[in-house]
């Protein structure tokens, strides 16, 4: 497991996002066991209390559940996994749209650029941008 951490942001949030990403992409399947605090702390070289907090938050959100004496597991509810996916997608979108607005694109142009880019199989963004602003 490798994560590029940003020391300016809470580490527990970064690990949460990383685990969620693993769940969404399927490298951690529904009902899979999650490493223990000790294992993850040692693997990521992160303070065990920070890892503990990550797990507490994941449990609070219903993403993980702990079973007495057995450890922690990824939720097996498909609905929950779908909602993580949606949540991550909306975060991506928000960032993207925010960035595009900063560049001066209005809603209509953003939709147009996205549509063109998707149709064109991901043509180079620079080319597309020039095309629409001209």
């Amino acid at each position: 497991m490798t994560i590029e951490f940003d020391n300016n942001l809470p580490i527990y949030l970064q690990i949460m996002n990383y685990i969620k990403l693993q769940i969404v992409t399927g490298s951690l399947g529904p009902g899979d066991k999650i490493p223990s605090v000790r294992e993850l702390a040692s693997e990521l070289k992160i303070n065990p209390n920070t890892i503990q907090r990550t797990f507490q938050e994941l449990e609070r959100e219903g993403v993980a559940e702990s079973r007495r004496g057995l450890g922690r597991f990824v939720t097996s509810e498909d609905e929950k996994i779908m909602s993580i996916k949606k949540e991550m997608a909306s975060e991506l979108l928000e960032r993207f749209i925010g960035g595009m607005r900063e560049l001066g694109f209005d809603s209509e142009n953003i939709v147009k650029i996205v549509a063109e880019s998707v149709d064109g199989g991901g043509r180079e963004a620079g080319g597309t941008k020039r095309g629409t602003t001209a």
């Binding site: 020391n7 300016n8 942001l9 809470p10 580490i11 527990y12 303070n47 920070t50 907090r53």
Partner: peptide, 15 residues
């Protein structure tokens, strides 16, 4: 607590 510092200030401990 270090995570509290990061949450409150948006800064690394080094910063």
């Amino acid at each position: 607590e270090v995570e509290q510092i990061r949450i409150d200030s948006g800064k690394s401990i080094d910063q």
